[in-house]
C-alpha cells in the first residue's frame, strides 16, 4: 500500500464507522466522475496523481477536459504529476454539514507545482491548521473513501475509492 496510508485523517472500517468508535459516520458522498474525469479518478484510486497535458502546446490543465483552452487541440496525454504544491487558500470548517464529514476539518486549495496556474483541492492531514500559511509546501496523500453510499448510488465507474488529501512537505 501507499507509504502515506498511515496519515489518513479518518480511518474507517468496512461499515463506514470510525475505528476510534466516535459514532457511526455516514459514507462519504461520491458525486460521480464524468466522462472527462473518470480516468483521473481511477488513477487516484490506484494512488497515482496524474496531470493532463496538451499534446500539441504542452500546456498542463486541471481538471480533465477534452479541449486545450490555449491552442484548442483535441490531443492530450497523461503524465505522472509531482504530487506537490503550495497552499493557496483554506477553510477550517467548524460545523458539520454532512454526516460523513465530522467537524472540525480543513480543506485546502493547492497550487500544483506542475504548472503556473493549476489548482486542486483536498483536506489537510497530519498538521495543525493554525500553522497554515499561503505558499506553504504540501504533498499529496491518498485517502480511502470507505464503502459506497449504497446500491444504485453513482460511483463514477469505480472512481472515488480514494481521494487526494495534502500534508505539509518538509
Amino acid at each position: 500500500m501507499n507509504r502515506t496510508q498511515s496519515l489518513r485523517q479518518d480511518v474507517r472500517d468496512q461499515d463506514g464507522r470510525r475505528r476510534d468508535g466516535r459514532g457511526a459516520a455516514a459514507p462519504r458522498p461520491r458525486p460521480g466522475a464524468d466522462r472527462d474525469s473518470a480516468y483521473w479518478w481511477e488513477a487516484v484510486g490506484e494512488g497515482r496523481f496524474l496531470v493532463q497535458y496538451c499534446a500539441d502546446c504542452r500546456t498542463p490543465r486541471f481538471p480533465a477536459r477534452e479541449v486545450c483552452a490555449v491552442c484548442l487541440s483535441l490531443e492530450w496525454e497523461w503524465r505522472e504529476g509531482t504530487g506537490t504544491g503550495t497552499v493557496d487558500g483554506w477553510t477550517v470548517t467548524r460545523r458539520t454539514f454532512h454526516p460523513a464529514f465530522e467537524a472540525p476539518y480543513t480543506v485546502l486549495r493547492v497550487a500544483l507545482d506542475d504548472g503556473p496556474a493549476l489548482y486542486c483541492w483536498g483536506r489537510l492531514v497530519g498538521a495543525d491548521p493554525g500553522d497554515l500559511r499561503r505558499g506553504q509546501p504540501v504533498e499529496a496523500v491518498f485517502t480511502d473513501t470507505g464503502p459506497a453510499p449504497g446500491a444504485g448510488a453513482p460511483t463514477g465507474g469505480g472512481a472515488f475509492t480514494k481521494v487526494v488529501d495534502w500534508r505539509p512537505r518538509e
Binding site: 462519504r28 458522498p29 461520491r30 458525486p31 460521480g32 466522475a33 464524468d34 474525469s37 481538471p63 493557496d88 487558500g89 483554506w90 477553510t91 470548517t93 454539514f97 454532512h98 460523513a100 464529514f101 476539518y105 480543506v107 486549495r109 486542486c120 483541492w121 483536498g122 483536506r123 499561503r134 473513501t145 453513482p154 463514477g156 472515488f160 481521494v163 488529501d165
Partner: peptide, 26 residues
C-alpha cells in the same frame, strides 16, 4: 456532483459558507 464540484464535494467542501471562506482567507 456536476462538473467541477466533483473535485470539492469528496472533501466535505459542500456549503456556500465554505466556498467563500477560502477566498476570504486568502
Amino acid at each position: 456532483g456536476a462538473f467541477d464540484l466533483q473535485y470539492q464535494a469528496p472533501y466535505g467542501l459542500l456549503a456556500p459558507v465554505q466556498h467563500y471562506a477560502v477566498p476570504a482567507r486568502a
